[in-house]
Design a protein around this nucleic acid. Structure first.
Lengths: 212, 212
DNA sequence: GGTGATGGATAGTTACGCTATCTGCCCCAC
DNA sequence: GTGGGGCAGATAGCGTAACTATCCATCACC
């Protein structure tokens, strides 16, 4: 198809698609035999859809999107590597959580908590830092807080992660599989956030009605 | 304290604090008896901390932050109202998930799913829309998808929401309570996301090692 | 053969979240 | 009492990110 059709089918404007092409987020179209004309395929359509998923649902910057797409295209990368890139990209955006000055000891408590769970997570994983900062912030709000408050969250996280892992392929044999893996990670994270908020809305509403 | 001290204790530059004052995110300092000098208190410090939590951890725009702060300051607002504002603000940022054209029927399936859970959630809740779009996107990736894949997520969401609801006050008697409620909602959501990502990193890593 | 889309390049725009500068005033240490 | 630094308030500017618009030569298609 030509760029006009790619535009109408993807819902993105032609200039935006050209912009993504320039930025290297979208591979160039295929040249016809002789002319200067380029043609785009279904692949381009799904790539555009993935880009929008990452930016809109995953709220990634285009720089992070580029990293993820490179990982998707990197056929030599093992599944764990791809997941790491996605995680990195999802965390990248809230990297500068630099207000809370990380109370002394909080990092150690988080580390021993994570290790206590038996999780094999890199020492440098940004998740540890996020958790440390959340713990510190919670303590500012209401005095000392046991790191154990995270236990139910960790349990839930593990249960869901296990479910998701079960539906992953053993290895990434095609780009399509890689793209699906990435998309599912982002989509299910958004779904969980939405359900959490709805559950809270429900419970608070019901409590209010009972109390009144 | 004067603005210089507020700056050093909060870690924010004086111009930034002035900017927040201009934007109405931070209430003006208290005027001394006669002079033109203004003085700031602990309240300003915790307000700044809340602003940064909402922007950095909650990734809200300053416009959303303003709405939330107004709700926090609105002493007449019931607890459920405050929660609704926070939820709204957290969702506001991914409002324009306008790529996926929402497959026919997906919205109905999501609605009956949510109702089937027995959750009392407003028809207009943005969570329904997010879930609809996630479902549609999942179906694009891998054909038909049962809406029931959300069941484990909903269960986990409900369990965590119940825990969080248990530690909420009955009513919001002080601004401090309101601010704490808001902060906890944002922080625990970030913690859950971090733990989910770490759990995935762990599981994928272990699977990779077993498979190899 | 003409006309409307396309490719490729360059420049401009908008929104956001600050940041810098300026002016006049005021506080307070000396 | 005074001079120098900090402060309030106002206005203007900056930097990044993510597009968007324009141009023009070329080309496909009717």
């Amino acid at each position: 198809m030509r760029i006009r059709e790619l535009s109408s089918r993807s819902g993105l404007s032609v200039p935006t698609i050209k912009f993504y092409l320039r930025e290297g987020l979208l591979p160039p179209g295929q040249a016809s035999a002789v002319g200067r004309q380029l043609y785009y395929g279904e692949h381009h359509l799904s790539r555009l859809s993935l880009i929008r998923m990452l930016t809109v649902v995953g709220r990634m910057s285009l720089a992070s999107v580029r990293e993820v797409l490179q990982a998707v295209d990197n056929r030599g990368l093992p599944l764990a590597g791809l997941c790491a890139v996605v995680t990195e990209a999802l965390f990248a955006e809230d990297a500068s959580l630099n207000l809370v000055p990380e109370r002394r000891g909080a990092a150690d408590r988080v580390d021993s908590f994570v290790d206590g769970l038996g999780w094999r997570v890199a020492d440098t994983s940004p998740g540890r830092q996020t958790l440390t900062r959340v713990l510190t912030a919670l303590e500012r709000l209401s005095g000392d807080v046991e790191v154990d408050i995270f236990v139910p969250y960790a349990e839930a996280a593990m249960r869901l992660a296990a479910l998701e892992a079960a539906s992953m392929p053993r290895s990434l044999d095609s780009e399509r599989e890689a793209a699906t893996l990435v998309a599912r990670a982002v989509l299910l994270e958004a779904a969980m956030a939405a359900l959490r908020r709805m559950a809270r809305e429900h419970l608070v509403g019901v409590a209010g009605r009972l109390g009144a």
